[in-house]
Structure formats: structure tokens, C-alpha cells
Nucleic acid binder design. Structure first.
Length: 262
DNA sequence: CCGGATGTTCACCT
DNA sequence: GAGGTGAACATCCG
């Protein structure tokens, strides 16, 4: 998916739907409806309404409807937002090269004839009414040193696990986390709570800068580390062979020389 | 054929 | 309670 960068692009795309009245809801895939949300509820809460705002929190896209209901959209790894036939960032590395309308797992039609849909081959995303936004932590794209210190404090978990814990820090996924740790020169496997203040500050600034940079470049997959993610890659900075291992349950790429274990 | 891939949730261990 | 692991979802790619 979509990490924060891609969802922000989806949010901007979703702004095109603001003020347009919803005429119909297609929610035939029960698997895609999360946390007790039903097709009947979606029908009842959405039809006749129009979005007043399109917001984003971490990787969650939120449409505030004028009746007060909030529609939450998630994209998993492979979901894409389609509005009136147009994509947001259109370059998902694992998105299929094919494009099957059958992969539309959820859609709303507007009275003007337009349409908003989530097209998701693997069905990893989902839809939820009035999602609990308190389940998401501080926004990664603007995280401060003080905020990050609170996220990491007192934890023995690997740094990477904490950075990807959406309840504490919202928005980073596997690629952005590896890229940020690499740019900051910090080993993602170090215990989160063990980082001294100067490294926490450097990491916070690096995360913000990395998100901004990769946004300009065009997505989470445009990092400097990306070409080396496969086996046999080398560090773009020092040329050392990159290390590939599992940290925090995800495949993790780092430079043993530039990101020392301690 | 097999493994792994920008994610989340849940059950089940330690 | 805190972490860790594996499953589930379904498709593509090497």
C-alpha cells in the first residue's frame, strides 16, 4: 500500500468528491467491511450525503460527510483509490499490471454520474464507518523530536517495530521506515528505548525530510535504498553489502557499516 | 513450483 | 503486560 505518501495522494484525489451527493453504494464484499460495519449501514449513512472534507490520518483516509458520519477507507498494500476513472499515485510496485474492474471491493456512485472506488486485488484494505481515530498515533510526516521521544521511551522492542506501530506513530510502512533509519544512520533493530536524545532528534528530522523527499520523487518506493532491497544489494552511500533480515516481523534492509548495531 | 511483496488483525505462545 | 510468530486475505513476479 500505500504508505502515508500514497494515501495523501489519494486524499487529494478524494477532494474531487467534496460536495457531490452520493446516489448509490456498492459494498457486496463483506470481507472488505471492517469492525462491524455492514452494507446496510453504509447504504443508510451514505446515500443522500456528500463529503464535506477529505482528511488523512496516517494511512487512513477519512471522508467527513455532511450528515456527521465519517467514512474510513484503508488500502492495505495493494489497494488504490479510483475517482471518476482516475488513479492517485499510479505506480504501486506490487500492484498488478492488469486492471480488473472485478477488483473494485467498494464503491460509491454520485448523482452526477461519477464514482469513487477502492480497487484492491488482494483485498487487504477495508471500509469502516466512524473509525476510532484515537487508535492512530502522532502523524509521522510532521513528527517532532519530543513526540518521537515519547513514542520510543521505555520500550525494549526493536526501533523499527515502534516506528511502524500505527497506534503510536501513524503513517510509516516498511519502505519508509527502512529508508528513514538508513538516512539517519541508525540500526532499526536497536531497542527503541535505548536511543540517546541526539539520535532521537536526528531520526525525527530524518523521517520528516524523507517523507517530504519521497513525496516529491513520487512515492514510498523511490527511496535511495530501494534498488538494494533485493538480494545482493549494496549501500548507495558507502558501497558495503546491505544486510537483509527480519526485524519487527518485516523484511528489513540496512547497512551494517552506516547503521552500526550500537 | 515456491517464496515474498508499501498492511492489519487476530489467535496463540513465551 | 509486552513481544514475537504465523495465519488470513489473493495476485504478481522472479
Amino acid at each position: 500500500m500505500p504508505e502515508l505518501i500514497e494515501v495523501e495522494s489519494y486524499r487529494q484525489l478524494a477532494e474531487r468528491t467534496i460536495g457531490r451527493r452520493i446516489a448509490s453504494v456498492t459494498a457486496t464484499d463483506a470481507w472488505f467491511l471492517k469492525r462491524g460495519t455492514t452494507a446496510e449501514q453504509l447504504e443508510a449513512e451514505l446515500v443522500g450525503q456528500a463529503a464535506r472534507a477529505a482528511r488523512r490520518r496516517g494511512k487512513l483516509l477519512l471522508l467527513d460527510l455532511d450528515g456527521g458520519t465519517v467514512l474510513g477507507l484503508r488500502f492495505g498494500m495493494t489497494g488504490r483509490l479510483v475517482v471518476d476513472g482516475t488513479w492517485g499515485i499510479d505506480d504501486l510496485q506490487y500492484g498488478s499490471t492488469r486492471d480488473e474492474p472485478a477488483w473494485d471491493r467498494f464503491a460509491v456512485g454520485f448523482i452526477d454520474g461519477g464514482r469513487l472506488a477502492i480497487r484492491d486485488p488482494r483485498r487487504l484494505g477495508g471500509v469502516e464507518l466512524d473509525p476510532d481515530e484515537t487508535r492512530l498515533g502522532v502523524e509521522a510526516s510532521t513528527v517532532t523530536a519530543v513526540e518521537l521521544a515519547a513514542v520510543l521511551a521505555g520500550s525494549d522492542a526493536p526501533l523499527k517495530a515502534r516506528l511502524m506501530d500505527q497506534q503510536r506513530l501513524a503513517g510509516l510502512g516498511n519502505l519508509l521506515t527502512d529508508e528513514s533509519c538508513w538516512r539517519a544512520g541508525i540500526d532499526p533493530a536497536r531497542p527503541a528505548g535505548s536511543l540517546p536524545e541526539d539520535e532521537v532528534g536526528r531520526l525525527a528530522a530524518t523521517i520528516v525530510a524523507t517523507v517530504a523527499d519521497l513525496t516529491v520523487r513520487g512515492g514510498s518506493h523511490t527511496g535511495d535504498l530501494q534498488p538494494g532491497r533485493g538480494r545482493g544489494g549494496s549501500c548507495p552511500r558507502c558501497g558495503s553489502p546491505l544486510r537483509r533480515r527480519t526485524v519487527g516481523g518485516r523484511t528489513t534492509v540496512s547497512c551494517p557499516r552506516d547503521q552500526p548495531e550500537r
